[in-house]
Structures are given as C-alpha cells and as structure tokens.
Nucleic acid binder design. Sequence first.
DNA 1: CGCTATGTTGATCCATATCAATAAGTGTGG
DNA 2: CCACACTTATTGATATGGATCAACATAGCG
Lengths: 239, 239
Amino acid sequence: MCPVRLTMPESDYPDIREVHLFAEMAEDSFEALMRGAYVQNFPPQIELITEGEPSDFLHVLLTGSVDLVSSWNGRETSMATVRPISTFILAATIRDAPYLMSARTLEKSRIALIPSQDVRAVFADDHVFARAIVTELAQCYRSVIKSQKDLKLRTSRERLANYLLRQQRRAGGAAGFDLEFEKRRLASVLGMTPENLSRAFKGLGAYGVAVDGTRITIEDQQDLERFAKSDPLIDDHTT
Amino acid sequence: MCPVRLTMPESDYPDIREVHLFAEMAEDSFEALMRGAYVQNFPPQIELITEGEPSDFLHVLLTGSVDLVSSWNGRETSMATVRPISTFILAATIRDAPYLMSARTLEKSRIALIPSQDVRAVFADDHVFARAIVTELAQCYRSVIKSQKDLKLRTSRERLANYLLRQQRRAGGAAGFDLEFEKRRLASVLGMTPENLSRAFKGLGAYGVAVDGTRITIEDQQDLERFAKSDPLIDDHTT
DNA sequence: CGCTATGTTGATCCATATCAATAAGTGTGG
DNA sequence: CCACACTTATTGATATGGATCAACATAGCG
C-alpha cells in the first residue's frame, strides 16, 4: 500500500536534468535541489495530491503518467495529463498556495519530490534557474489560455478534430496513430461526456476519420484540416 | 486619430510603483525600466494589440479599462477585463511570443509601454524584480485555471450566481451594487450569449436576485449562496 | 429628438447531457 | 484457460441547456 520512499539516487540526475526547468542551471544549485529530494514509486490510481491542500513539494514525473483533475459540487473534470519527463504544480509551489487540482497516477509512476522551500531558496540564488522558472510559468499560462480559447470558441466536434490533428503530429504525422489515453478521459479533457465523444467521432467520419478502438486513421487529411481550421494561437502548444 | 506619444513623466512613477510587479524592486532598476518607457493616451474602442502579432512592450494600464478578447473562425470571446493599475500580456513579453489575445480599450485609457527587452534585461539584474515576475505569472496562471474550472464544472446560471457574489464582495459587500461592465461583455466573459444572460438573471430571481439595469440587489444572501456553492478554489482570485 | 447600440422577450433549433440498455474489453481467481 | 465480474465504449431515446433568429423596448448619445 504505502509507496517506498528513498532519497534521490544519482542515477536519476541525468533524467531530471533533461527537464527544461533544470537543464541550464549551475551544477551546484542543481545538487542543492537534489540533496533534499526524494523519489517515490507509486502504483496506478493513487491520489498523489488533493485539491485544496497546501503544497510542500514540487513534483517531477520521471516515468508513468499523471492525471490532473478538479471537482466541484460532485462533478469532476480532467484538466490535463502529465507525461514524463516534466514537472507539475509549479505555480502552487511558487505561491505557497493550496493546490487547485488533484493529481492521480494513471499508471505505475516514478516521481521525484523536491521540497518547495528548496526550490524557492535556489531560485533566489541562481539567475539561470529563476529565468527557467519564469519561462516555464509563462508557457504554462499560455497553454491554459489556449485551452480556454479552445473551450469557448469551438464546439465539441471541432475540439476533437483539432485534438486529433495535434495528436497525429505528436505521433509522427502518419495517417494512422493511437490515442494516448482512454476515451473516457479524453472526453473529460475535451470538456464533454463519453457519449458525446462517441458521437463526435462518428460525426468526423464524414471528414475521413476512421476509429478502431484506440487506433485512429485519418483517411482524408485535407478534408479534416479544412473542417478543423487549426490555429497556432490555439493548437500549437510549443510557444 | 493617432494617440499622443510621450516619454514617461515622472509624475506617473508613483502610480506604477503601486503595481505589485514593480513595488519592491530596487530604485535604480525601476528607473532603468522607466527611462525606456512611454505613456500614451488612447480613445475608447481602440485596438491596442492584435492577436498573433509579436509582442514588443509590456503594457501597464494606468487609467481606463481594457478588454482582452480572442477570436477564431469568425467567433469572438472576451477572455478578461483589465482594470487599473495592472499590467497585461506579461507572458507573451517574457516568452517573446505572439499575443494570444487582442486588447481593446473600453474607455479612454492611459497606458504605459515598457519595451520588452528592458523588462528582460532588468529581470536578469534584479532578484527582487525576478521574484515579482514569477509571483505575478504564477498568480495569472492560477487565475486562468480557476476560470477554466468555472467553465467546465458549472452551468451558465451557476457561473452568473458566483460572479455576482464575487462582484458583490469587490463592491464592498452590501446587498446592492453595480455591475462593473455592460451585460453584453459580461455574457461573453461568462461564456454565454447576451440572451442567455438575460434569462440566467431571470432564473436567479427565484433565489432573490433583483436586477434593474446595471443595479443588482441581492435580497436573500443565504439563498443565493446556497445555490451558488462558491468555492475558494474557483472563486477566490487573490491567491 | 431621433439614431444606433444594447437589452429583453418569445419562438424555435441545435448541441450536448442524461438515462438506459447492450456490447466489448480487461483483469482476476479458480 | 475459462468463467466471472467489472469497467469502458457504443447506441438509442429523451430531456435540457443554451444558441439562434426575430421582434420589440430601451437607453445612451450626437
């Protein structure tokens, strides 16, 4: 039940260094961060953090995947999915404020926990790290704004079409590719019900989208693109 | 037509200093920022910045008000309203990336423009300023997340009820208060049509909300609160 | 004082949610 | 390896929130 807790083995250092946030910082500030850090292995479906609780650690997902969800009045929605290697809940850590989302492992996951106070201390000391944090936060902010535009300006079918095109790119650009997670959660991420997602998929059949389980094939790229009207100011999640 | 452009008069310094972002920084880095800055006066309904364009200046709204809107495929939505004294489009400035939203004056507005490169230069030089930027960005990020939760987890009537309670607080907490902007735009901010907003107001009549033009009176505070189910993790925009 | 933009109301349509039933996987223990 | 339970996906029927269209009222504003 209880996950194993151990101090960070040095073998993990290179992986963590790959994360933008830590890539450029001075070696000794990096090690200062690592000294206080832990690594834990979690089974699937474990609630790592709970909405509303105070934030003590910056989390770095090393392997596995984590779902960020929010709820209100008995309803729940998936806000984002974290994939390795990246950090999550940086903003709460920085502001020393309660989490706005809960985090739950989807698969068996390996996660590094860096005490928030260490992050803040090294931040004050290392310009390069400070700059990296600013860049990261600005990026996160812009990501949510894009997602908000997606929600407010598009119908669910349009959101799905654009999601498929984004996912296709990420998967390498071939006509056929796999959905990265189950439809149930995809529906929640896109802000709709599973039933509605099923129907949206069927509706996109008219534009050459074929679905077989988690396997998607885009039979007429142009037609789907004409329908989706992708916009870098909404769909490009790299800037 | 063309607004008057002048270098920043020193009389504006104290106002700008009031903004969190600039409040704590060293005097000489503050002045370094101000030296390159301009102040402009704009008439109402002027498009200050346009979605998709590169960002060259950090904007500080001194007086007036500014609407941030996004559009796609002929549709448009209001993302936020900026009120004095605060900055906007910080994230785009930091990332040196295109604006995700357009900005349009609502009233006659006085706006300071600080060259983005100066912001980045002073950032590298002044720890305190760097910390302030991080705090500000984290706050902006959390604000959008809250707004996203509001959108995904609540019906339009629930969003309106909670908006009214927030606005009531900001106005001082009395039962009667005024809407801060026209209903047309309020509808857009809340993610609905003007017609639907009208009906949502009528629907809230059952919970003791009386509307007369822009004047709102909450006749039964408890009843509305029971309906609204406000949640600090969505509705408290101070943390 | 009229003009134009904004707000309201009603009728209708459409997108999406909900409820219900079934089918198809997926994993578990015997 | 199969049988069982359990979750997920699909499909249909229906309800409802919200959008759209149209008419009218109203309020600012030149």
